[in-house]
Nucleic acid binder design. Structure first.
Length: 589
RNA sequence: CGGGGAAUGGCGCAGUUUGGUAGCGCGCCUGCUUUGGGAGCAGGAGGCCGGGGGUUCAAGUCCCCCUUCCCCGACCA
């Protein structure tokens, strides 16, 4: 039993000034966590209880699909990560350090290499497969911007698991088992979530899905189709493009468009020129081809320019662009960069000079909406001039396509064409099929039935455990405080005694708390003497146990009050039957 | 890493303009009163005013550098 008179806890009346999002404010105010370092939090008794409860749910479901728990060091040697190139590819996000002899180490951001090597060490036959291993580990990432308390820290707890199979069918089966386990886990945690198609990012690999908690403060944006089941992270959206309807476009020609460095000014100018648009209607930004130049920063530190062409009514989504170019990063093209590439006329950049073989020597990739035969207005590479009726395939080419244009609400679903919604979420889980990238890099092979060496195929699956604590707080609270789902609450029931220490109320509340514990419930007992009832009620609401029992003035009429934290519903129960009643309530779900 | 704001007791804040004894509310300790919605009175404890360097007789306050935090843009469990 947790007695508030003894518990290491101090609740705060005011929100901490450095917290912005509700989960951060409430977890600090309620005495669950305490900031200890930039991006690092101390877990206080109640917070750690929630953390362990989430771990328990995760373990049960992982064990349920036959995965086996192991535990690696967080402090890892450089070599395995060198072999897979991630020592460099992970960039500044990787915590690197040296030992006293100058040897390189890192704090593990994720453990694909170590698991792969472990299996290689011990297993060498197809008879050993499939096998799935997992750990619940402290992970380290030197985030550029830790924020929102637990939601994005530099040290966090993650459950990561890895499946090892002989062939693609086996991988598909392991992947599905994990996916289903994740569904059960997040259902039990009471987190509202969506499963979306995702990029595999720096991990490499093929099929990949994310579990996103639907949440306004989320950092991910995703689309969802209103009529079919399609859902995807915007980074991973693959646009469905209608073929060009343009036909018999007259020859391209240059027009004078003075002072038109932006799409808006260009459209206004085109309207005033009296030139007709290829589709016969009024000119819009969608008729223009905007060429945006960026600097691509490669993992080895080198920088190469890249031009991206998108319809003028859309921005280039830097997140989507970077996801396509991963592990390289994208930087804005600065004034100094323009000076170094004089062929690029800012505001009037056109395909004439773009392309690896052309004047500017800049690689040129086009959005998939620039289809064969489509006609565009675009820069003429001379200040104040644009080209009209430039047809892709006829008048210009590119070095390839790229999905970097922004995604908007109302864009059509790649599966069924219906308009899509756009929402925000927090990534709480990620499952993906790694394939053979790591097994090849680290030489993980087993002998098959025919005695031949086969490269093993792998899956990798993560759940942010510490993040899940914050996500539950974020998705389950009200203006009074936290509301934990019973499965992970620090206690089933919060017993409030308003007694003065030496009266019937005190002795009966004692009896209630002890009896409930004997019946197998986890009890948080506010047995503090000399604390006013108002304070105890406020604390009970802030702390967020699912059931609150108040032994107080009602006892004079033989009644005890039982409240449901989430609904606020209050019931007066006969003191004689209150134990059974509460046990029933707590076991009901 | 760019732009904006901030750092004063456990928490929230004033004081900085105009340099001159470090304050308020909450919390904490003691005593008395109080006890169903963050009680009252009285008395206390607790501060290298984020760090370093300057200017000055004198710096929380002025100047320079650094660190950290929050928000907005580029990364992920």
């Amino acid at each position: 039993m947790l007695r508030l008179s003894q518990l290491f806890l101090r609740t705060l009346r005011d929100d901490p000034a450095d917290a912005e999002v509700p989960s951060h404010k409430l977890l600090v105010r309620a005495g669950y966590i305490r900031r200890a370092a930039p991006g690092g939090y101390t877990w206080l008794p109640l917070g750690w209880e929630v953390h362990r409860n989430i771990e328990r749910v995760v373990r049960e479901e992982m064990n349920g699909i036959g995965a086996q728990e192991v535990h690696f060091p967080a402090l890892l040697p450089r070599e395995p990560y060198e072999a897979t190139n991630r020592w460099d590819d992970y960039g500044d996000t990787l915590f690197r350090l040296k030992d006293r002899r100058g040897a390189d180490f890192l704090l593990g951001p994720t453990h694909e290499e170590m698991f792969t090597l472990l299996v290689r060490d011990l297993y060498s036959s197809y008879k050993d497969l499939p096998v799935s291993l997992y750990q619940i580990q402290t992970k380290y990432r030197d985030e550029a911007r830790p924020r929102a308390g637990l939601l994005r820290g530099r040290e966090f707890t993650m459950k990561d698991s890895y499946s090892f199979d002989l062939d693609d069918d086996g991988l598909a089966t392991s992947y599905l088992a994990h996916r289903n386990a994740y569904i059960r886990i997040f259902d039990r945690l009471g987190i509202p979530y969506v499963v979306v198609s995702a990029m595999s990012g720096a991990m490499g690999g093929s099929k990949s899905e994310e579990f996103l908690a639907e949440c306004e403060v989320g950092e991910d944006t995703f689309v969802r189709c209103g009529s079919c089941n399609y859902a995807a992270n915007t980074e991973a959206v693959r646009v469905r493009v209608a073929p060009s309807t343009h036909d018999n476009i007259p020859a391209a020609h240059v027009v004078d468009t003075p002072s038109t460095p932006t799409i808006d000014t260009l459209v206004d100018c085109l309207k005033s020129l009296g030139v007709t648009a290829p589709h016969g209607g009024e000119w819009t930004g969608a008729d223009t081809l905007k060429n945006v130049v960026v600097m691509v920063k490669n993992p080895d530190g080198s920088r190469t320019p890249l031009a991206v062409g998108v319809p003028g009514d859309r921005e280039v989504d830097m997140k989507r662009l970077e996801a396509q170019l991963s592990p390289a990063e994208v930087e804005p093209f600065g004034e100094a960069d323009f000076a170094a590439f004089p062929a690029l006329v800012k505001g009037y950049i056109g395909p004439d000079v773009l392309g690896a073989e052309k004047a500017a020597g800049v690689r040129y990739l086009l959005d998939t909406r620039i289809t064969d035969g489509s006609a565009w207005v675009t820069g003429a590479n001379v200040s104040g001039k644009h080209v009209v009726n430039l047809v892709f395939g006829r008048d210009f080419t590119s070095d390839g396509t790229i999905e970097a244009a922004e995604v908007r609400a109302g864009d059509s679903c790649p599966e069924c064409g219906a308009p899509m919604r756009i929402d925000r979420g927090i990534e709480i889980g990620h499952v993906f099929q790694l394939g053979r990238k790591y097994a090849e890099a680290l030489d993980l092979k087993v002998l098959d039935k025919n005695g031949k060496q086969q490269v093993v195929t792998m899956g990798s699956y993560g759940i942010g455990v510490s993040r899940a604590v914050a996500v539950v707080a974020e998705t389950s609270h009200d203006e009074l405080g936290l509301c934990w789902p019973r499965e992970i609450a620090p206690a089933d029931v919060h017993v409030v005694s308003t007694g003065k220490g030496n009266d019937e109320i005190t002795s009966f509340s004692d009896h209630v708390a002890l009896s409930l514990e004997q019946r197998g419930l986890k009890v948080l007992f506010d047995d503090r003497i000399g604390v006013s009832p108002g304070v105890k009620f406020k604390d009970a609401e802030l702390l967020g146990m699912p059931t609150i029992v108040i032994v107080g003035k009602g006892l004079a009429e033989g009644k005890v009050e039982v409240r449901d934290r989430k609904s606020g519903e209050r019931t007066d129960v006969d003191a004689a039957s209150v134990i059974d009643h509460i046990v029933d309530v707590c076991r009901a779900l």
